[in-house]
Write a protein that binds this DNA or RNA. Structure first.
Length: 480
RNA sequence: CGGGGCGUAGCGCAGUUUGGUAGCGCACAGCGUUCGGGACGCUGGGGUCGUGGGUUCGAAUCCCACCGUCCCGACCA
């Protein structure tokens, strides 16, 4: 009887059906819900809080590296988008068009931005005249619409939130350095705040951004051993500046086109947190971005009811004042056990239990979400202990992610091994590639794996596919 | 966008084969007993059966179209 009830409440185990687990945990933890339009979701308060934390931490890093925020229009005239053909061809299948204003048909239809290179390029051509105007270092936080055919909450939705940086520079070298700089900002951000270990590198021609000279990325391995791109940084060369006529007079009084970059990360990050850290009990958030860092569960039995709650509330207040994200779950209709499971499912890093036993001894019990370790702590040293444990959780979660990535990265020389690993173990395959797109295509057709990142172009080896001399060391994986 | 599955109360489902006026568990509300790992009893509220059309005396059930969602392929942050 009790077992049956428990079964109904529980989510599908991650190990038995990853996709189903993913969708269930997102809905049950109230991160997001489906909207009535295809491929669109509502990000609920608990999910949005993670995005807000990501946003404020990343925004700080973006500003520290010299960028300023601005906002450009949601709509882009078709003629502007059409100026760059490669770019348009890359995006046209997924552009949403506005054709009417009120009842009147527009003379020129407007694209709902699938990305903002075109509108920003157009404005930069007005703003940039001299080398003295450079560099231009602008970032915007915005929503993006791409009419995707296959969607999944957070990972690929028709509308998503992101940050897109767009910079213009005097020299190629400076723009290339900017591209690398932002790539490393992303890598450090994902690893230190999201506690997800990533690889970074260059995209192949086939995988790169439409219109870019070079696309770099950070890629992580999710716990089903498929790869997820978590951020991109593009070196755009003078591609867009020629198209949008972004010219400046250089130090020798010659007219030049600017060198550009663009880079972005999106709400996909939230999906990555779910898939990288979650387990059969639900979500598990790293403390740095967790919506709640500490949940206080009072054990208030019988006559202790009057005594436990005030103490719990005092603890909540003092932790709150110290800047911890903390809540007290004082709901009477649920038992402590129920609350334990509930908050574990919602991924709160640390649970604080306080009951009659603890109050007698001036203690509290702290339980970690990531490894369930339990310890009794004196109420007098709660703050320090919690601070310490939270930082341990952050570190341990990253170490676990790093180990997972390393354990699931396979160095392969023979094509036969490549195929069998992709069929069974999955994960990253680190191998040599000759650079021929035909090999890339064959590998994709045979195994569904794609090149996630080129990590070195100077190594010497034999192509895992054709066996010819190869200069590229690359990571392959099945990707989201 | 192709191939397949699903859509019935907030969630999970039964009912559809064989048409006859909608049900179960959980959740929710009230009262009481409980509370250190998903408590229990009694009482109660909640449904245009995804949407629109058709067949029929009568449709959750049969037919058509559309929408949404999930899985597998082709395309992508």
């Amino acid at each position: 009887m009790k077992d049956k009830n428990r079964f109904v409440e529980k989510i599908t185990p991650k190990s038995s059906d990853f996709s189903r687990w993913y969708v269930e945990v997102i809905r049950k933890a109230e991160l997001a819900d489906y909207a009535p339009m295809k491929g669109m979701m509502v990000i609920r308060p608990y999910g949005y809080a993670i995005w807000e934390n990501i946003k404020s931490l990343l925004d700080k890093r973006i500003k520290e590296t010299g960028h300023k925020n601005a906002y450009f229009p949601l709509f882009i005239p078709e003629s502007l988008l059409k100026k760059e053909t490669e770019h348009l061809e890359g995006f046209s299948p997924e552009v949403a068009w506005v054709t009417h204003g009120g009842d009147d048909e527009l003379e020129e239809r407007l694209a709902v931005r699938p990305t903002s290179e075109a509108i920003i390029g157009n404005m930069y051509s007005k703003w940039i005249n001299s080398y003295r105007d450079l560099p231009v270092l602008i970032n915007q936080w915005a929503n993006i619409v791409r009419w995707e055919k296959v969607t999944r909450p957070f990972l690929r939705t028709a509308e998503f939130l992101w940050q897109e940086g767009h910079t213009a520079h005097e020299t190629q070298k400076e723009a290339e350095e900017e591209t690398q700089k932002m790539l490393s900002v992303y890598k450090e951000f994902v690893e230190s705040e999201l506690a997800i270990s990533v690889i970074s590198g260059l995209k192949s021609e086939r995988e790169k951004f439409a219109g870019a000279s070079a696309t770099y990325c950070v890629e992580a391995l999710m716990s089903d051993k498929k790869a997820l791109q978590m951020g991109t940084s593009h070196f755009l060369g003078q591609h867009f500046s020629r198209v949008f006529d972004i010219k400046f007079e250089d130090r020798n009084q010659k007219l030049q086109y600017v060198w550009q970059t663009s880079w972005g990360v999106s709400t996909r990050m939230v999906g990555a947190l779910v898939m990288a850290h979650g387990d059969d009990s639900g979500l598990c958030f790293p403390p740095r971005v967790a919506p709640l860092q500490v949940i206080i569960v009072p054990i208030s039995i019988g006559e202790w009811k009057q005594n436990v709650l005030p103490v719990a509330e005092n603890i909540r207040q003092s932790l709150d004042q110290k800047g911890f994200r903390v809540e007290l779950d004082a709901r009477e209709q649920f038992t402590p056990g129920w609350k334990f499971s509930e908050w574990e499912m919602k991924g709160v890093p640390l649970r604080l239990e306080i009951g009659p036993r603890d109050i007698k001894n001036n203690n509290a019990v702290l339980v970690r979400r990531d490894n369930r370790n339990k310890q009794v702590v004196s109420q007098d040293e709660l703050e320090n202990k919690i601070q310490e444990i939270l930082s341990h959780i952050q570190k341990d979660m990253f170490d676990k992610s790093l180990k997972f990535r390393e354990d699931n990265t396979h160095e392969v020389e023979k094509y036969q091994d490549f195929e069998s690993i992709m069929k069974s173990k999955m994960g990253f395959i680190k191998a040599f590639w000759c650079g021929n797109p035909d090999c890339e295509t064959k590998i994709k057709e045979d195994t569904k794996a794609t090149i996630r990142a080129v990590v070195s172009e100077k190594e010497k080896g034999k192509c895992v596919c054709c066996g010819k001399d190869a200069g590229f060391l690359v990571y392959f994986a099945k990707a989201y």
